[in-house]
C-alpha cells in the first residue's frame, strides 16, 4: 500500500499504535479525523480500537453516523482493504459492512490478556499469507467482544469461508469461537484481537506482524 488512512473518532485510543506498527512495515499511515469525507488519498483504511463516541448507547452505534463512514462504505464497495480492530470491528458491524454484532462478554468482565488464535481462512486481506491452522498469540482488550449472529448468517459465514480467526480457548462467549470475520469479497475484515500490539517478541509476541504485513501487501480486490 502507498498510504493507509487510520480513522480517528472521538474516543479512539489505538490509532498511534496502528500508525507505528504500519510504519515498521514500511507503510506510511496517517490519522484521519472522523469528519473527513474524502478518502481518495488512501489505498487502505484502518478503524482502530478505543471507545468511539464514548461507546455510549452501544459500541459503534454512534460512530456509524460519523461523516467519514459513508466514504468508508464506498471504499469498501470498490475493493479497498478495510481493517477494523476491536472497536473498529464493532463500528463495522454497526455500519452493516460486516454481519452480526459484538455483545458483552459472557462473563461480564473486561478482558485484557494475550489469547491464542487459529487462522481459519485465508480468504481475507488480513490472513491471505498465513496458512489455515497457524497458531497466533495476540492480545485482546475488550468488554463487548462476544460475536453474535443468527443461524442463517453463521451458516453463510461458514459456507463462504469468511471466518478468518477463531479463539483456541474462547474467552468471551463468541459464537463458534469467532475472533474475526471478513466480508464476501475478503477486503473488509474485523477482529477483536489487537495485531498492532503484537509487533515485537520483546513485548510478548510478534504474531501480529504477519497479519498486518498481509494487509499492507494486499492490493485492491475488485469484485
Amino acid at each position: 500500500m502507498r498510504r493507509v488512512g487510520v480513522l480517528v473518532f472521538p474516543g479512539s485510543n489505538c490509532e498511534h499504535d496502528v500508525v507505528r506498527a504500519l510504519g515498521e512495515l514500511d507503510t506510511p499511515a496517517e490519522l484521519v479525523w472522523h469528519s473527513a469525507t474524502d478518502l481518495s488519498a488512501y489505498d487502505g483504511l484502518v478503524l482502530p480500537g478505543g471507545f468511539a463516541h464514548g461507546d455510549y448507547l452501544r459500541p459503534g452505534a454512534l460512530a456509524r453516523f460519523s461523516p467519514v463512514m459513508a466514504s468508508v462504505a464506498d471504499a469498501a464497495a470498490s475493493g479497498v482493504p478495510v481493517l477494523g480492530i476491536c472497536n473498529g470491528f464493532q463500528v463495522l458491524t454497526e455500519a452493516g459492512l460486516l454481519p452480526g454484532a459484538l455483545q458483552q462478554n459472557a462473563g461480564l468482565t473486561f478482558i485484557s490478556e494475550p489469547t491464542a488464535l487459529r487462522v481459519a481462512s485465508t480468504r481475507s486481506v488480513l490472513t491471505r499469507t498465513t496458512p489455515v491452522g497457524t497458531r497466533l498469540v495476540i492480545p485482546i482488550n475488550h468488554f463487548s467482544g462476544a460475536y453474535t449472529c443468527d443461524d442463517a448468517t453463521y451458516d453463510e459465514l461458514v459456507a463462504q469461508d469468511r471466518i478468518v480467526l477463531r479463539y483456541e480457548d474462547n474467552p468471551n462467549g463468541s459464537r463458534g469461537d469467532i475472533a474475526g470475520i471478513a466480508n464476501a469479497a475478503g477486503n473488509v475484515v474485523g477482529l477483536m484481537p489487537h495485531p498492532e500490539r503484537a509487533m515485537s517478541t520483546l513485548l510478548g509476541s510478534a504474531d501480529g506482524r504477519e497479519l498486518l504485513a498481509s494487509f499492507v501487501g494486499s492490493g485492491v480486490l475488485v469484485g
Binding site: 462478554n105 459472557a106 462476544a146 453474535t148
Partner: peptide, 14 residues
C-alpha cells in the same frame, strides 16, 4: 431488550 435466543449475561447474573 436483547432478542429471544440472544444470550443476556446481565439478566442471567441478576
Amino acid at each position: 431488550t436483547l432478542r429471544e435466543g440472544i444470550a443476556d449475561p446481565a439478566g442471567a447474573t441478576i
